[in-house]
């Protein structure tokens, strides 16, 4: 009994330490975002702002920061939607129809290899592709590129859900008199709902946090917030409070999505 209590004690202690480890950077970012820039460089650092100010937020939301955030929202929403919609259709095909030439696993693995390369390996040709088409630095180019990079992930996640959906349920719907698309809407989509939610969340996180593509394919006309962050340096001084403020704002959409979809994400990891 004593032994068990100790185990429990250390377990909780471990979790507390881990919690501090994970949460402290977030706390520090929030803390910094409400400081004046002079306060940021104070030694020793203060754990609460000595003078609470929204100065940094005001700056970020006035200028390019707001544009960068709204660009990021447009691109991330667009690319996530495309990746998930196409991913749903592709995963259905992978799950239901035989592929000639490959086994289904082979065909699907081919798609997954796209994600195994570091994106930088593809980016030069992609850069030239968009440049040649005159589409460099547009929402369109960013959305298409992000969709392409996240489609394999979406397919891979959703195929698992499609596979676990019994075929007979779809066939029952055909026999009941519903067409293919009616069946997709009435039966398939509701039954893979949790898979869709999880896929949306994961695609969103990858796209929203991405830097290299944003930096190389955008950055002038269409600047995403990840590409804008490094620009917040003024000569010798790094405006940590502004960077922190932008970071706090950028965390918000992801937090909303993760809180809404967390039970579906857990389901994926438990499978």
């Amino acid at each position: 009994m004593r032994k068990k209590n100790w185990g429990r004690f250390f377990g909780i202690l471990g979790l507390v330490v881990y919690g501090i480890f994970v949460l402290f950077p977030i706390y520090w970012t929030v803390n910094t975002s409400f400081k004046e820039v002079g306060d940021v460089y104070k030694v020793p650092p203060s754990f609460v702002p000595t003078k609470f100010t929204l100065e940094a937020y005001r700056f970020v939301l006035q200028g390019t920061g707001r544009i960068a955030l709204s660009n990021s929202l447009v691109v991330a929403i667009g690319a996530t939607l495309i990746a998930v919609v196409l991913g749903t259709m592709a995963s259905y095909a992978y799950s239901r129809y035989p592929f000639t030439g490959f086994t289904n696993e082979g065909a699907q693995f081919n798609l997954l290899t796209v994600r195994m390369f570091p994106p930088i390996a593809f980016l030069l040709p992609i850069f030239w592709l968009w440049k040649t088409l005159g589409l460099l630095d547009t929402h369109f180019a960013l959305i298409v590129t992000y969709s392409a990079f996240n489609l394999p992930l979406a397919v891979w996640l959703l195929k698992g859900f499609m596979d676990s959906l019994p075929r007979s349920v779809e066939e029952a719907s055909y026999v009941d008199g519903y067409s293919f698309w009616q069946t997709a809407r009435r039966v398939v989509l509701p039954l893979i709902g949790s898979g869709l939610a999880a896929t949306v969340a994961l695609c969103w996180i990858f796209i929203w946090n991405e830097f290299i593509i944003a930096y190389l394919l955008g950055g002038t006309d269409v600047i995403l917030y990840t590409a804008y962050l490094p620009a917040l340096r003024r000569g010798m001084r790094i405006m940590w409070n502004q960077i922190a403020a932008l970071s706090v704002l950028a965390i918000i959409p992801s937090v909303i999505i993760l809180v809404l979809f967390r039970k579906y994400l857990i389901k994926i990891y438990l499978r």
Binding site: S168, V169, Y174, V175, V187, L191
Partner: peptide
């Protein structure tokens, strides 16, 4: 003629009820 246009009904071995 596809299933939805035939006047048939089927009871599947696994019953295939709509779980939702």
């Amino acid at each position: 003629v596809p299933a939805q246009k035939r006047d048939v009904a089927m009871v599947f071995q696994d019953f295939a009820l709509y779980p939702h």
